Computed example of a mutant assay.
Amino acid sequence: MDHDGLLAQVRATYQALDPVPAEVLAAARAALAWRRPGAELAELTGDHAGQAGAVRGTPARTLTFTARDTVIEMEIAGTGREREIAGRLAPPSPARVHVRHPELPPGGPETHADDTGHFALPAIPEGLVSLLFHLPDGTSIVTSWIRL
């Protein structure tokens, strides 16, 4: 048996005995498909559940992402299969906002942050999500992946 044959047998054995979950494969494919070289990463620095004042009166989850010079605050509300995201950029800046989601095609949901940095995204499917912000100066910020 040659090297390639042995590797094929090992791969087949792992796929039969301990397959990679479909959700993990989808997230990996989405991460590679949505890579944004040059985009600054905004890491999750705060995650608080059940905050008051949520959209439509349901308990909300408040997330804070921090990049070098920018803070992104988001409120996630809703139950069931869809969530609503409302947020803002600080310091305030207009931006084009893209939703990155393994189950949505590229060019999926998009909105704009206004001059005060506020944005809203209704009906985002539950699951892994990352937001990509295209700023007026040509730079981009991408949030780390979170589970809605």
Rank of each mutant, 00 (worst) to 15 (best):
A39W: 04
G46L: 11
G50Q: 03
G53W: 04
H48W: 11
P37H: 03
A67L: 14
T45D: 11
L44E: 04
A39H: 00
A39Y: 05
L44V: 05
R36Y: 05
E40S: 06
G38Q: 10
T66K: 14
Q51W: 00
R56L: 13
R35V: 04
W34C: 12
G57Y: 12
D47P: 00
G57I: 09
R35A: 09
H48V: 14
R35D: 13
R56I: 08
A42R: 07
A33T: 11
A42F: 10
L63G: 02
P59W: 06
L32N: 00
A52T: 01
G38T: 09
A33E: 10
D47V: 02
E43V: 15
P37C: 05
A39K: 00
W34Q: 14
R36T: 07
T62I: 08
A67V: 12
R56T: 02
P37E: 07
H48A: 12
E43Q: 15
A33V: 09
A67R: 10
G50S: 06
D47Y: 04
E43H: 15
R35F: 09
P37Q: 02
G38A: 06
A52F: 03
A39S: 05
A60L: 08
E40C: 09
G50T: 05
A42G: 07
Q51K: 00
G38L: 12
A54N: 10
T45G: 13
D47F: 01
D47E: 04
T62D: 10
D47H: 03
G46I: 02
A54F: 10
G50I: 02
A67T: 12
G50Y: 06
T66I: 13
A67C: 10
V55F: 09
T66Q: 15
L41W: 11
R56E: 15
T64D: 12
D47K: 01
L32G: 06
T62N: 08
A60Q: 08
A39E: 03
A39P: 03
G50R: 04
E40M: 08
G46V: 03
T66M: 13
Q51F: 00
D47T: 01
G38C: 11
L41A: 15
A67N: 13
L44W: 02
E43M: 13
T62A: 15
T58V: 09
G53N: 09
L63N: 03
R61N: 12
L44P: 01
T45E: 15
L32P: 00
A67P: 11
A60N: 01
A39V: 00
P37Y: 05
P59C: 01
A33M: 11
R56Q: 12
A42E: 07
T58S: 12
G50M: 05
L63H: 01
G53I: 05
A54M: 12
R61C: 12
Q51E: 00
G46S: 13
T66P: 09
R36A: 08
A60R: 02
L41K: 15
T58I: 08
F65M: 01
G46N: 06
R61V: 12
